[in-house]
Each structure stands twice: as structure tokens, then as C-alpha cells.
Write a protein that binds this DNA or RNA. Structure first.
Length: 303
RNA sequence: GGGUAGGUACCAAAGUAGUCAAAUGGACCUGACUGUAAAUCAGGUGGCUUACGCCUCCGGGGGUGCAAGUCCCUCCCUGCCCA
């Protein structure tokens, strides 16, 4: 089946980590002549393969993939860049008359791309941040209120990270702050969610985690270090990257690192679930057959 | 056997007479998330109740006292030190 120029559609695959999104994306891509746009905030980085469960060349089975390895782990990658590159990839795929399959676990990225958030690119200003970090959240809030009353209205007042970023943005793009407006893609989108029994999911996460370790996850971290990343930066990647950085620095034991990783991996899947739960467009499927059926139906009608 | 420190809610750990259903951290649950998102943040976590409130609770038992997690006696248990 082929999509045609005037029949542009998008399939989105979401789900928890280790739920089987990747496998499904390949199946759908093969069945419906698609190409994959990854939506994963850590797989965008080069040199982070094992710990991000990045799809391998072999697994790709010649299906083109986008938004993988597009950034240096030294530099911060943001949603704004994701959206920009994602849009480009989308057009690329449409140009080839193929079906774009957006697949990943970073709900925020998917939202930015598909539902559209217009945002100017603002690079992190480390000096600024360092200064702001000294302030209390009350002070930060007041500051933001002065700079951008509108943004201050609906920001989480207790969240220093968001406060700082908001200030940073309004300071560098000067006034007036562009109202962030939703700018959804003008194409029909099918949202598929890969569902897995929680018990099974937990087991699979664990299994995959130990596989990473066996595949040399520790070496991956060491390589990142050699490439010049600070421990602090590696810790920012979170979860097992943080836990094992701590271990390699001698701050916690290996066992503690394992335990902490597993714990945080699970907490992460719960956060993902919370995020996806509220998106009522997502149709939850239990297997690829179901997904194929739904996709077929979705793709068969003309726009 | 002697000495000593301790036994507090799922865990760790404050509290040493009233303002304690009991600080704080973790874990867990629920949730927010339109600019670091694998990040960050919020709320909840003895029982019943919409709520006011009521009941149960700080190793066991017994006291003192208007009032006890907090004081006294005793028993049990744990750590450490000396035998």
C-alpha cells in the first residue's frame, strides 16, 4: 500500500519503555511502506546506543530512520530542535511518498511535533543559569513575572527548572514573548499505544537492563567520559546513566547502582503512563496484528 | 553473666509530659508538565467520615499523673563493649 501526495497521513506509536514499540514500527513500516521518525529524547544523541536501547542497523532492516544520532551528547538537545528536525524529516518522507511513522516514548517530543508548538530556538546560557540557580523560587517567579507576565501565569511556580528556562528564553529573545501557540499538523494522525501487562513489562525492563550491562553499558559511559563529557553531564541523562556514573566515581556500590537503575526505570515508565493516559486519541493495542488492522483501516480511506 | 546503647508508622530516622496521627528522607500511590522532558515539579500514604469529628497507635504488660511516644517498674528483643 502506498500513500499518495494528496493522501498524507501519519502513524504515531507510543508506549512505555521496553513495550515493543521498535519492533512494531518496523513491522508497520514494512507493511505500509513507511519510514520511521524516532521520538526519543536520549536516542537523538550519538554515542548513546546501549543505554538508550537504540535500534541497530540490522534491526532497521533497511527502513530509513530519522532523528537518531542527530546531536552530540556534549551539547544539550531541546524540544525546539526536535520539532524543527522532525518537521524536516516529515516533509522528506512525504516527498518520497512514504508513510511517516513517529515512534518513541518521549511524549513531550511527540506533542511538540504533532500538535505543534511554535518556539524560537534559545540555546542554554550557562552563566545565566548559574546565577539564577542561587535564587529562591520566589525570586525567580517574581523575575519571570516582570519579564513575561503571561508565561508566569501558567507556569509551575514551584519548579525551578522551568522557571529558569522561562527566564532564560524571555531574556535572550527579548520582549515580547511570543505566545506559544499550538500549530497542529494538517494531516490525519493515527495514535497507537503499545500495551503490555505491567508484570510482564516490569520483567522485560529488567531483562533488557541486564542485557545492556552485558553489552557493555559501562564502557559506553567510559567512552562518553573519554569523549570529554563531565560526570555532571552524564548524570543529567538520568536513570541508569546517572546511577552508573555515580558507581564509576566510587560514590555508590555496583549493587546500589543496579538497584537504583531498576527503580528509576520503573518510575519512569509510570510517568510515561501518566502522560499517555490523558491523551484520548491513543488507541491501545496488544499486538502487531491489531496495530496492522487499525493502520490498514486508517490508511485505506482517502482524505 | 556484667556494662552500655537502643526498640517509633512500609523502611530509615526525629521527637523525651499537653500545641503528636507523630518532623524529615526514602519507598509506594496519584497527578502536573507548551521551552533540560530518561528531566523537573505537586499532592497523598493508620481506620471510619463529604466535613466538623470520632476511634486505634510509638516492642509487651503494669504504674504515676488532669494529661505519657515522652516519667517509673517489669518482661521480651537487638547492637556494641567487657567477661
Amino acid at each position: 500500500m502506498k500513500t499518495t501526495k494528496d493522501n498524507k497521513k501519519i502513524v504515531v506509536i507510543v508506549g512505555a519503555t521496553a513495550s515493543g514499540k521498535t519492533g512494531l514500527s518496523i513491522k508497520l513500516a514494512k507493511a505500509f511502506d513507511g519510514e520511521v521518525i524516532s521520538a526519543d529524547s536520549r536516542q537523538v544523541y550519538k554515542q548513546m546506543d546501549i543505554g538508550t536501547a537504540k535500534i541497530t542497523k540490522k534491526e532497521m532492516a533497511d527502513i530509513p530512520h530519522y532523528l537518531l544520532d542527530v546531536a552530540s551528547p556534549k551539547k544539550k538537545f531541546t524540544v525546539a530542535q526536535y520539532r524543527k528536525l522532525g518537521l524536516k524529516a516529515l516533509n522528506n518522507i512525504f516527498k518520497k511518498d512514504k508513510l511517516p511513522i513517529v515512534c518513541g516514548g518521549t511524549g513531550f517530543y511527540i506533542q511538540a511535533l504533532v500538535d505543534g508548538i511554535v518556539m524560537p530556538e534559545v540555546k542554554p546560557d550557562w552563566k545565566l543559569r548559574k546565577g539564577l540557580e542561587q535564587k529562591t523560587i520566589g525570586e525567580l517567579y517574581l523575575m519571570l513575572k516582570k519579564l513575561d507576565p503571561k508565561r508566569a501565569e501558567n507556569i509551575d511556580k514551584n519548579n525551578p527548572r522551568r522557571l529558569i528556562r522561562a527566564i532564560e528564553i524571555s531574556l535572550t529573545i527579548k520582549k515580547p514573548i511570543p505566545a506559544i501557540k499550538a500549530n497542529p499538523l494538517p494531516y490525519p494522525v493515527l495514535f497507537l499505544g503499545v500495551q503490555k501487562d505491567p508484570e510482564k513489562l516490569k520483567k522485560d525492563i529488567e531483562k533488557r537492563f541486564y542485557l545492556w550491562l552485558k553489552q557493555g553499558f559501562l564502557n559506553e559511559i567510559k567512552k562518553l567520559r573519554k569523549a570529554g563529557l563531565s560526570w555532571k553531564r552524564i548524570e543529567e541523562f538520568g536513570m541508569h546513566y546517572r546511577a552508573f556514573s555515580l558507581y564509576l566515581q566510587g560514590e555508590i556500590t555496583y549493587e546500589e547502582a543496579e538497584e537504583q537503575s531498576l527503580k528509576e526505570l520503573w518510575q519512569y515508565t509510570k510517568r510515561q503512563a501518566t502522560w499517555f493516559k490523558r491523551d484520548k486519541r491513543i488507541i491501545w493495542v496488544k499486538n502487531s496484528a491489531e496495530a496492522k488492522k487499525l493502520s490498514k483501516k486508517f490508511l485505506s480511506y482517502e482524505k
